[in-house]
């Protein structure tokens, strides 16, 4: 199934995006489109600019040029808290669990940005471990539990586009499996997901499309049904 962007609702359109950290020029003109309800991955090697792309969408890098449209609205001049309020949920690399807050405080920290988010009860039934440990210090949880918490945190807010950065990094296979189940559920709910992922075997069966990022640019776009044909090309890019 190939998506035709012009026929669907464009939730995110990034055009000619450049980003800088101080003097270093990280993104060199990223162009990508994500439609509502799609799960799109950004693949590439470490340092290719995938995480920076997510951060740039959130306006969390130094300087940016180009254009980022969310729901058809230009956001280059928006502060990060305005971007979140357009329905964007950001799950940072290394999870960003606050050690000064307990699990429940971490979970309820992000304000509700849209209606239709999951209730605390729904979240606890999806992640029973979090309920059991709701009064523990956030950073006392295991890595897997912290990742569940980082995901659960943005599901409560009603965000309908999730930017997920390396959510499987360093986690046991059984946890990774659980995360895949969660992503499938979220996709079935119609959420739009942009996934930065190192673990291609995790991402491949879930995603509708893949963008390959290299040296701060998109070098290849591969839809799910082209994956088999382009596997060797992709392996070259990823260096596997």
């Amino acid at each position: 199934m190939s998506h035709r962007p012009d026929k669907e609702y464009e939730q995110l359109r990034v055009s000619g995006l450049h980003a800088f950290y101080g003097e270093s020029h990280i993104l060199h003109g990223i162009d990508l489109v994500v439609n509502r309800g799609e799960l799109v991955t950004l693949l590439g090697r470490n340092g290719a600019g995938r995480s920076t792309t997510l951060k740039a969408i959130m306006n969390m890098v130094g300087r940016r040029t180009g254009s980022i449209m969310i729901n058809g609205e230009e956001t280059m001049s928006c502060a990060p808290h305005h971007i979140a309020r357009l329905g964007v949920g950001y799950c940072p690399e290394h999870r960003g669990i606050f050690s000064a807050l307990n699990v429940q405080e971490n979970l309820t920290l992000p304000p509700v940005v849209r209606s239709g988010g999951m209730s605390l009860e729904e979240i606890y039934s999806m992640f029973p471990n979090l309920y059991e440990r709701r009064f523990s210090q956030g950073t006392k949880l295991s890595g897997g539990e912290q990742q569940m918490l980082a995901m659960a945190r943005i599901l409560r807010t009603g965000a309908n586009m999730l930017l997920l950065d390396e959510i499987t990094e360093g986690l046991a296979p059984v946890i990774v499996e659980k995360l895949a189940e969660v992503l499938i559920k979220l996709k079935n709910k119609g959420l739009t997901i942009v996934l930065v992922e190192q673990n291609f075997h995790f991402a491949a069966p879930l995603a509708d499309r893949h963008y390959v990022v290299e040296h701060g640019q998109i070098v290849e776009e591969i839809s799910a049904d082209e994956l088999e044909a382009k596997q060797s090309l992709l392996n070259d890019y990823l260096g596997v």
């Binding site: 950001y90 606050f98 000064a100 807050l101 405080e105 920290l109 992000p110 940005v113």
Partner: peptide
């Protein structure tokens, strides 16, 4: 309190707080 949770979290990572939609400035 909730407001206090904002303060404690902001002490650790105010940029991420703002990314959640909290008006950090």
């Amino acid at each position: 309190t909730k407001l206090g949770a904002y303060l404690r979290a902001g002490t650790e990572d105010s940029q991420l707080m703002q990314g959640f939609g909290i008006n950090v400035p």
